[in-house]
C-alpha cells in the first residue's frame, strides 16, 4: 500500500514544513521591523502572498495532472486522484487567501471587502474550484468522472492568470505585485524580503506535505470503492435468486473488516 520511502519522505517534508512555518511566524511577528507606512500591519505580508501563491501552485498541479489524464499516452487514474487532491488543498489555501486578505484590508484599506477586480476574481477562483470538487461527487464511473473533472479543472485554471494580472489589467484597490511583478524586482527590503521568501518556501512545504497525505487518502478510498464494487457484483452474480441484505452483510463484515464510510 504505502512504501517505506513514501512514508519517510512525507514525514521529512512535514518536519521541514513545521520548522519553516515556525521560523516564518517568529521572524514575521517579532524579528522583522515595522513598515514606514503600514507599521505593524506589514507583518501580514509574510502570510498573505505565500498562501495565495500556494493556491496558484496547487491549481497548476491540478491542471498538469488533468492534462496527463486527458492525454491517452499518459492516462492513469492516479493523475486524476492527484489532481483532485491538489485542488482540495488549493481550495483551503484560496480560502485562507480571502480570510487573511480581508483581515488585512480592514485596517489597511478601511474595508473588509470591496468589489475590485483582484478580490472579485479571487472569490471566483474559490467558487470555481468548489464547483470542481462538487462535480467530482456526482456519481459516475472512474473514467467518466476523471475526464469530466479534468476538463472542468482546466477551464477553472483560466482564472488563475486573470487573478494574478487583474491588478495590472484593471484599476483596483488591491496593490500591484510586490515580488512577482513585470520586472521581477521585489519592492521590499532586506530582512523583510528574506522573511517573505521564507514564507513562500515554508507554505510550499506545507502544501507538498498536505498533497502527499491527501493523495494517499484518495488512493486508499479508491481501492475501498473498487473492492466494494467488485464484491457487490460478484455477490449478485453468485446468488441472483436468494439475494438478501443479510447474506451480503455477513460477507461484507468478514471480508473487508468494516471499511469506514468514504
Amino acid at each position: 500500500m504505502e512504501s517505506k520511502g513514501y512514508r519517510w519522505s512525507r514525514r521529512a517534508v512535514g518536519f521541514v514544513a513545521l520548522l519553516l512555518v515556525a521560523a516564518t511566524v517568529v521572524l514575521g511577528l517579532w524579528i522583522t521591523p515595522p513598515d514606514v507606512v503600514q507599521g505593524q500591519l506589514v507583518r501580514l505580508i509574510y502570510v498573505h502572498p505565500p498562501v495565495a501563491w500556494v493556491a496558484y501552485l496547487a491549481y497548476g498541479v491540478t491542471s498538469i495532472c488533468s492534462v496527463l489524464y486527458l492525454w491517452k499516452r499518459t492516462r492513469n487514474l492516479k493523475w486524476d486522484l492527484l489532481a483532485a487532491s491538489s485542488a482540495e488543498v488549493g481550495v483551503i489555501f484560496t480560502g485562507l487567501t480571502l480570510i487573511t486578505g480581508s483581515i488585512w484590508g480592514r485596517p489597511a484599506w478601511g474595508v473588509w471587502w470591496t468589489w475590485d477586480a483582484r478580490l472579485t476574481t479571487t472569490a471566483l477562483l474559490f467558487v470555481l474550484y468548489l464547483g470542481y470538487l462538487a462535480l467530482r461527487r456526482v456519481p459516475a464511473d472512474n473514467h467518466q468522472r476523471a475526464v469530466r473533472s479534468a476538463i472542468a479543472g482546466l477551464i477553472a485554471f483560466i482564472d488563475v492568470p486573470i487573478v494574478h494580472q487583474s491588478v495590472v489589467w484593471w484599476r483596483t484597490l488591491h496593490q500591484s505585485a510586490t515580488v512577482l511583478n513585470a520586472t521581477l524586482s521585489p519592492k521590499i527590503h532586506g530582512e523583510m524580503a528574506m522573511t517573505l521568501l521564507l514564507g513562500f518556501i515554508a507554505f510550499t512545504f506545507v502544501y507538498v506535505w498536505m498533497l502527499m497525505h491527501r493523495y494517499q487518502i484518495a488512493d486508499m478510498e479508491q481501492s475501498v470503492l473498487d473492492v466494494e464494487l467488485e464484491q457487490l457484483i460478484e455477490e449478485r452474480q453468485r446468488e441472483p435468486e436468494t439475494y438478501s441484505d443479510q447474506t451480503v452483510l455477513t460477507q461484507d463484515v468478514d471480508q473487508i473488516d468494516q471499511p469506514s464510510k468514504v
Binding site: P33, P34, W109, Q175
Partner: peptide, 14 residues
C-alpha cells in the same frame, strides 16, 4: 467612505 490604496512598496521604518 475613504479607502486607502497603499502602494506595493515595503520599507523598514528605519
Amino acid at each position: 467612505q475613504i479607502m486607502v490604496k497603499h502602494s506595493s512598496n515595503y520599507i523598514a521604518a528605519h
